[in-house]
Design a binder for these strands. Structure first.
Lengths: 102, 102
DNA sequence: TCAACTTGCTTACTTTTCGTAACTAGATGT
DNA sequence: ACATCTAGTTACGAAAAGTAAGCAAGTTGA
């Protein structure tokens, strides 16, 4: 990698959001808190990748994880303030896709 | 891959925009038409990937390519209407990154 | 008692994509 | 003939993604 002329914050943001599935996972979570299996069913992403992405997003403070020790165990993921702040961007992409994707 | 519950248009959009470098390349082109080497210098992307991405974007009608047969040859890439329509989304991500990325 | 089920993952393995660097094509200039 | 410039392409090892099977913990059913 060579040095970049672009803003490092945007570069960092795109390093996160540009990863496969990440934005669709966040889009899914805009609907509200959701369980692992719910997200997995809603998107064509495998458990392996979903687990990986959710960990990354948790580490970045975009998503939080809450465990309910029920039977069987229930784990819910939801957006933090930082995550919810992405709604504008995600909605813009959604709008664009409605207008421009055949 | 299994079937997805989410809107196929958004899925398609994210398949494009979610690829590494794609959004940063478009961000760069928001500045105006640019040559291959200009984009390559502005971003930490290699010629190999830049070439690949620009072809994809051209195929999707998001970017256009114009060759000037000068000495040496000059090739400029610029956003189509479809590409420019992404400005809102890209600016939202930019704003988010300014507010939320350390 | 104990096999079976459920959720939320993890591991193992294959295929695809990426990153780095070297190389090519076409049109000059020296 | 040889070096130079832009705009790529090619080759190849490394990293990431896709697929499928396995696992732990608690509970239910026989």
């Amino acid at each position: 990698m060579k040095e970049s002329a672009i803003c490092p914050r945007l570069a960092k943001a795109m390093e996160l959001l540009g990863k496969r599935w990440t934005t669709l996972i966040l889009y899914q979570l805009l609907e509200g808190p959701q369980r692992f299996n719910e997200i997995e069913s809603a998107l064509p992403v495998s458990g392996r990748l979903l687990s990986e992405r959710l960990k990354e997003l948790e580490k970045e403070g975009i998503v939080e994880r809450k465990v309910y020790t029920e039977v069987p165990v229930r784990v819910e993921y939801f957006l933090t303030d930082k995550g919810n702040a992405l709604e504008g961007a995600i909605r813009e992409v959604e709008k664009w896709s409605q207008c421009w994707i055949k």
